[in-house]
Design a protein around this nucleic acid. Structure first.
Lengths: 213, 213
DNA sequence: ACAATATGTGAACGACTGTACACATTGATG
DNA sequence: CATCAATGTGTACAGTCGTTCACATATTGT
């Protein structure tokens, strides 16, 4: 790295990924995108695609990697802003939704990928969700909010929380980005979902799932 | 209806819908299917497609209608077989999973459609889920299992239940159809999710969501 | 029996697709 | 400066796409 290059490396690469995201953000499904279409949107000649990706699945996988960064940024912000336990759920949901609004296309892509065409992308997204759930479990442990739960039960709870929030994406997908009223409805509903789950977790030990006679 | 026709009406129509489902069952995403591809799979000439559907979205919508029938059949079986309350969750989840295995492609299509390309299909599937949730609420009321919950809270709970079960589809999607061990794991995990939710619902009134100071 | 309608077939079109190849340009390294 | 690898461009080709049209066949209504 002697000098900065005039054309930064990966410039076209980024343009291609952004182009794919843009198309997804416009309502297209990732599985229906073609190489030519993406390169056209990126303002690049079709052959350039192969300089950076082997095929569309490859591009999808690299998008998941970038999605991971977005998720980690969101986690960091949540950890910094959610300090008092009583408003934990509301604030977390608010932060989540604001990140979805700020990176709408990314989360569209995530929602699509969960039932997408590429097995590899599917697995990658599910892996991100697992990581997210385990981090959530760590945080709850650290905040002494789950002391009566076994590791397995806490993991179960966090998995359910992450799934519930992830499903919210399909709700947000269906409303206009500027429909603040509807978005607020979704926010409140999601918060109540999580409250319901946490109430269940709080009373979980009293009727353990082992015996149910 | 004077006599039975040699070629039943809608024969090709059914073949086309089955063909689309078959392709989806093979891992393809509905949004990436083309008219020619579907007609080829159905063993029909491409032009025949237009005799029955205006475009692929139209076919998707009619698939959702058929999916509705599958869901209603499943509901009827659940209502008939789940009589005692103590095993309600386990039995319901078992019935659900068996129906998913029996109509794998249909539920694949449903999971895809939730974040699919066609807004109309999206809405149709979400509408089916709402109907399912409201029927579930009715059943719980009838079985006197939710007497302490307000209508709104019961609806909230059932919505969360339906979402959780629907998310299971992405899990079932990722395991081989004959991997009984993994499927049983998913079944147990889903049952525990629902137990957690119902425990939360049972203790919901003690910390109503209205005031949280 | 006859007309009308619904359904299936075949050929054809222009547009678009993925991909390969040869070539130009760039930045880094000797 | 010479060379090399990385990256971007233009051309080309064979295959597929959606869609139209004219035509054959089968079923229905009168």
């Amino acid at each position: 790295m002697t000098q900065r290059q005039r054309r930064k490396p990966g410039e076209t690469r980024d343009k291609l990924m952004e182009a794919a995201l843009t198309l997804v953000g416009k309502g297209r499904h990732f599985a229906s995108l073609g190489i030519r279409e993406v390169t056209r949107q990126a303002g690049v000649v079709p052959t350039s695609f192969y300089r950076h990706f082997r095929n569309m699945d490859d591009l999808g996988l690299q998008l998941v990697d970038q999605l991971g960064l977005v998720l980690r940024r969101m986690m960091r912000e949540a950890r910094g802003n959610v300090l008092q336990a009583d408003k934990l759920i509301e604030e977390s949901v608010t932060i989540f939704i604001s990140h979805v609004e700020a990176n709408r296309s990314f989360f569209f892509f995530m929602a699509q990928g969960l039932a997408g065409e590429s097995r590899a992308v599917q697995d990658a997204i599910r892996s991100e969700m697992r990581f997210f759930a385990s981090e959530l479990a760590n945080d709850l442990r650290r905040m002494r909010l789950a002391e009566h739960l076994s590791d397995g039960d806490l993991e179960l709870t966090c998995d359910l929380v992450v799934r519930t929030v992830a499903f919210t994406l399909t709700d947000l997908l269906n409303v206009a980005p500027d429909d603040d009223y509807q978005i607020d409805q979704i926010r409140q509903r999601t918060a109540r979902f999580l409250q319901l789950i946490f109430v269940g977790a709080a009373h979980w030990n009293s009727r353990t799932q082992a015996g149910n006679s």
